[in-house]
């Protein structure tokens, strides 16, 4: 057993539920894991924490994990995808009045609705995401492409924390956002924005977050295996609709009581078992290459990855067992 706690970085998002619940339900402890959950104010802190050995694991989306690994924002850092965490849950929210009822259709019809909405807004739409190297940006780009809108030319992209988006909507600083759960639902409930699409209309069930671990933790094979098992148990718990109420309750608790101060009602509505347009799914198992293939392709299309890097990343998701064997190979 490790003598120091495993430091796991999370943000105030519903995706963090499997880590939060693993502690609350004593699952980590049952697997002999001592953990310290670090609630981070920004994605940059998560990436820096992993880069400077201040975090051992984090709930993270693949684009930032890959860019951190490649040293695109600080020094390069070996990271491993230990487990899937969540699927979908991202919402594209716009302010003002929705010209149609519900989500927008793709193609020319969607483009027409976009033009009507933009005319009402009266400027080049300002659309916020939480981080540039996020799945949200990729989903937003795909959505705009589906309605024939060029992200580079026709909208202005901003980056801000989800909680700031709520106030930015009310002050008309932004016209839209692509944001993770439960923040889109929260904006809708307050009456600040409406949902025009998101994960389910762009790329249903796409991998959203994963548990990424440091090389040191990964090489401590027994700990990594126990961590994986604990996460699978917690993910199974979080997937069950009958636990929706309890999870929402705990995520709404203050930090000092092990929660994330999430808005309770919005969180309850988007958890598995909810019936809203975009619900968050929890996904167990190892991260497989098909899970991140679209992400790598999109990142390459944006010019973030070159041909060689794409080729090397194919091996990133080799099964942990295979890689644990590799990790042990020198000592054999």
């Amino acid at each position: 057993m490790m003598s120091v706690p495993i430091r796991i970085g999370v943000l105030k998002l519903a995706d963090s539920a499997p880590v939060i619940m693993a502690r609350q339900k004593g699952i980590f402890a049952r697997y002999g894991l001592e953990t310290e959950i670090v609630v981070s104010p920004s994605w940059a802190n998560i990436a820096d924490g992993l880069a400077w050995n201040r975090l051992d694991a984090a709930v993270l989306f693949a684009p930032l994990a890959l860019m951190t690994m490649l040293g695109r924002r600080g020094h390069d850092t070996v990271l491993h995808p230990l487990s899937r965490i969540s699927r979908g849950g991202n919402t594209i929210m716009l302010r003002g009045v929705n010209p149609v009822k519900g989500v927008w259709k793709s193609g020319a019809e969607g483009r027409e609705i976009f033009d009507i909405w933009q005319a009402a807004i009266g400027r080049k739409p300002r659309i916020a995401v939480v981080h540039i190297y996020s799945t949200h940006l990729l989903i937003l780009r795909r959505f705009l492409k589906m309605i024939d809108v060029d992200m580079d030319r026709e909208v202005e992209i901003l980056v801000m924390p989800p909680t700031d988006m709520i106030s930015a909507f009310s002050e008309k600083e932004i016209d839209g956002c692509c944001v993770g759960a439960p923040w889109g639902m929260e904006a809708e409930q307050i009456g600040l924005a409406f949902c025009v699409g998101g994960s389910s209309t762009v790329l249903p069930d796409h991998l959203e977050k994963m548990l990424v671990v440091s090389d040191a933790l990964f090489r401590s094979a027994d700990t990594a295996r126990r961590m994986f098992s604990a996460m699978q148990e917690s993910l199974s718990f979080c997937r069950m609709p009958e636990h929706r109420e309890e999870i929402a309750e705990i995520l709404a608790l203050p930090l000092s009581e092990g929660g994330l101060t999430l808005p309770r009602e919005a969180t309850f509505r988007i958890l598995p078992g909810g019936t809203v347009q975009e619900t968050l799914g929890f996904a167990g198992g190892e991260v497989q290459f098909p899970d991140i293939k679209w992400i790598i392709n999109d990142m390459a299309a944006l010019g973030w990855l070159d041909h060689d890097e794409c080729g090397n990343l194919v091996f990133w998701t080799d099964s942990p067992d295979a890689r644990l064997l590799h990790a042990h190979a020198p000592s054999l």
């Binding site: 920004s42 802190n45 820096d48 924390p161 700031d164």
Partner: peptide
Amino acid sequence: DMERADRDALDS
């Protein structure tokens, strides 16, 4: 200050 949540914008 690393407590600033809006630091993510500088990354981008």
